[in-house]
Design a binder for these strands. Sequence first.
DNA 1: TAATTTTTTAAACATTTGATTAAAATATCC
DNA 2: GGATATTTTAATCAAATGTTTAAAAAATTA
Lengths: 214, 214
Amino acid sequence: MVYLQLKRKRMAKKIKPESDISTEEKIKEAARIVFMKKGFSATRTRDIAEEAGINLALLNYYFRSKEKLFELVMMEKFQAFFGVIFPILNDANSTLEQKVELIADRYITLLTETPDLPIFILSEIRTNADRMIENVRLDKILGESQFVKQLHARRPDMHPVQLIMSILGLVVFPFIMRPILVQSKSTDDKMFNAMMNERKAWIPKWFNSILNAR
Amino acid sequence: MVYLQLKRKRMAKKIKPESDISTEEKIKEAARIVFMKKGFSATRTRDIAEEAGINLALLNYYFRSKEKLFELVMMEKFQAFFGVIFPILNDANSTLEQKVELIADRYITLLTETPDLPIFILSEIRTNADRMIENVRLDKILGESQFVKQLHARRPDMHPVQLIMSILGLVVFPFIMRPILVQSKSTDDKMFNAMMNERKAWIPKWFNSILNAR
DNA sequence: TAATTTTTTAAACATTTGATTAAAATATCC
DNA sequence: GGATATTTTAATCAAATGTTTAAAAAATTA
């Protein structure tokens, strides 16, 4: 009975979208915040309820279980993380250099807004690969991409994955290091963001050097 | 009473080191394995007991609590992770290029043996900064290091942290990506390790290009 | 070998935690 | 405005989980 209401509610949305922020959305937003910060296992449903300012039971009323709610958030974040890069990789009209510029720019912009995104996704994949979206056929997506073809044309002597790891390392790794840097007072938020902004310009240059290195 | 035995045991070791593998060491080793794989929160003391093949109560008998046992493991892993790099950074007799070669070589060797190390450390720092070793004065250690001085001498126009993030990104990030690559069949273990081995030679070259990029 | 100490075990405890229930409050519909 | 449906609440449940206990087993000592 209860869970039928989910469907009903969802259908109702099309007709009459909730005026202001709905309970459902409050919970989802709280889940985003808490799950991202603590990961699945360290998060208690009560944390989410408190963050959302709602009664604990409403979490199960709207989302059935902690697991289901997590899957929802993970799906979203996964989409955000990979959604940025896939379209760029497949663009047939841009050069290799342009793709790298775009990746650096878009990713750094995204991650400056949500710096916890990489650690969240990467550590959840490690902790519980089963709970993860199984069929990211990264091999297919990458293998058939324009980007890989262009990389291979430029450097047939190197495995494209080598170069992809390098560019992602340059772009993403700083955000993974960030907690250490900030905690150890090596940087503060403002300085870190400024550096990341600088990297938007540096990384394409660096990657170009890497492409030409012998 | 019970915990005094800890001391007694430890003292006894000096005189008569346990012949074969002691219960204490069995638990510690199991804790290393399980904590590394699942992180603190997702690990149950029962998991560790099972992995060690010992009675659950022995965990508390020897290590007082899950938390204490975790701290022990974390300290070790932290040491392993940072212990590799710090001596290299401070060597007054090696050039910048030599330091980079050493870092790439030593880190890739270490991480090939324990590929989960970076995700473990970095995600635990995120999840629970309090439970972490607070006083890694990374700012002091880095700031006063030979490496930073050499970086600054070579490229006074760039913040040394920019360059450190880059080299660590090139070295460490592949190991953080590894679960995704392996799960998505983009690589297998053997191929991944082969690529990491190649990187020992490539990264110094790449970093040199980065140092010269304008 | 008897006494004592140390280690191990099975059982239980106290809390935490994800989830459910039944009733109350609120909104919607005719 | 009254009936019905939906949402919210407080209380509770059952299972999981970190930890403790008390007794048994094993090792050590004298």
